[in-house]
Design a binder for these strands. Structure first.
Lengths: 196, 196
DNA sequence: CTTCATAATTATCTTTTGTTAATCAGACCC
DNA sequence: GGGTCTGATTAACAAAAGATAATTATGAAG
């Protein structure tokens, strides 16, 4: 089941909003299971499905001009995931969203969320929160990429997301940091020898 | 005066919204002038002032752990600028916002915008647009930083913002691209010799 | 256990970047 | 004009990253 207390923390849900209010949304959602390799949304899709990840790990990737898959980010437990391009701008998805682990989601179409929100004024304040959280994450990421060296970015990644280094292949981590897997290997070695 | 037709394009303003509706906002705004070097908002400030840049150029910068100013972005004509951290999360500004050119803005506090929006339902659909545009820009920027090499980023920068290379010092451009000014010089030279 | 596939590491080499310092160029003031 | 300040370029060197290929895990499937 969904852990409501964790939700409170992640989405800064006020005490005024009780389990029942949130359950209106949860009950209207469809529960889905994805196996590793399954796609939630593919590039070019017009799907407006918004997923809440209850358990599991999703990678977001694009294909560059050399035909390589470049993982631009990941999403995991208690996070929302959707194609921002489609939901916000009515344009085809520009990324693939693929399960890395066995993943359980609750999802529904964006329009349906909007309708439920309208009928439940208590939920209204939370309409903007997802957008805001995404924006803050995005700015943080840009700063990291501009201000830090690859090695510093890796150290910060491990600090910020300690579990992810075990759940993600190095090649995905390398992509996310904007470096090559070979370079990541060397950085890891460098850090290991420095520590002594 | 403000060019309403340009506004339509930039903010995807629908035909249903006429000049009069928008003027409710513009008339409530304060017109301000900034000279090069002046600050709109400083790091640590709790200002919730939202600026519309009618004319001019603003740089956003942070100070890194070595005490250097690192320009993380710029804003210019027809763009909005504010401290997202303060407006969205009620936290002190984490950047300095400084005029590079003589700049003319229309501005008002975020709360006032909210009130005017409430009283003018026609404006309501545009509440989210600024946030959405910012988010899209941010994602585009992340992709650029992850997917492209420094040289490719510079070429793209010049393609995307042809005027900015003349309006901005190279050191600011270098910061924005996540490289050093020295490296930018070399990239410029490389491109110049390649072209022949 | 062996085989096969994929990922991670290592090695080698080339290219690029960072760092520091020197030089050059332009703007501005006296 | 000369002097000063700041920014851009260049030079020289060290450090790091990219590219490619070989080697070494690792893990799944038979």
């Amino acid at each position: 089941m969904i852990d409501f207390e964790k939700l409170r923390k992640v989405y800064k849900i006020s005490k005024a909003l009780n389990v029942k209010d949130v359950m209106v949304l949860v009950n209207a959602a469809k529960k889905k299971q994805y196996e590793p390799g399954d796609f939630l949304i593919k590039e070019g899709s017009m799907s407006r499905e918004v997923f809440f990840i209850n358990k599991g790990l999703i990678r977001v990737f694009a294909i560059n001009d050399k035909g390589e898959e470049i993982t631009t980010g990941v999403r995991y437990e208690d996070q929302m995931i959707t194609s921002p391009n489609t939901v916000l701008f009515d344009q085809p998805a520009q990324y693939y969203f693929q399960a890395i682990e066995r993943t359980e989601t609750y999802s529904m179409d964006y329009e349906k969320i909007q309708n439920i929100m309208k009928e439940n004024p208590k939920l209204e304040p939370y309409r903007k929160i997802v957008l805001q959280v995404l924006l803050k994450q995005a700015y943080k990421r840009i700063d990291t990429l501009i201000l830090l060296t690859p090695e510093e970015r890796y150290i910060k990644f491990v600090e910020d997301y300690p579990e992810l280094q075990y759940r993600l292949h190095g090649k995905y981590i390398a992509n996310i940091l904007g470096i090559t897997p070979v370079s990541l290997s060397r950085i890891r070695k460098r850090i290991a020898t420095k520590k002594k």
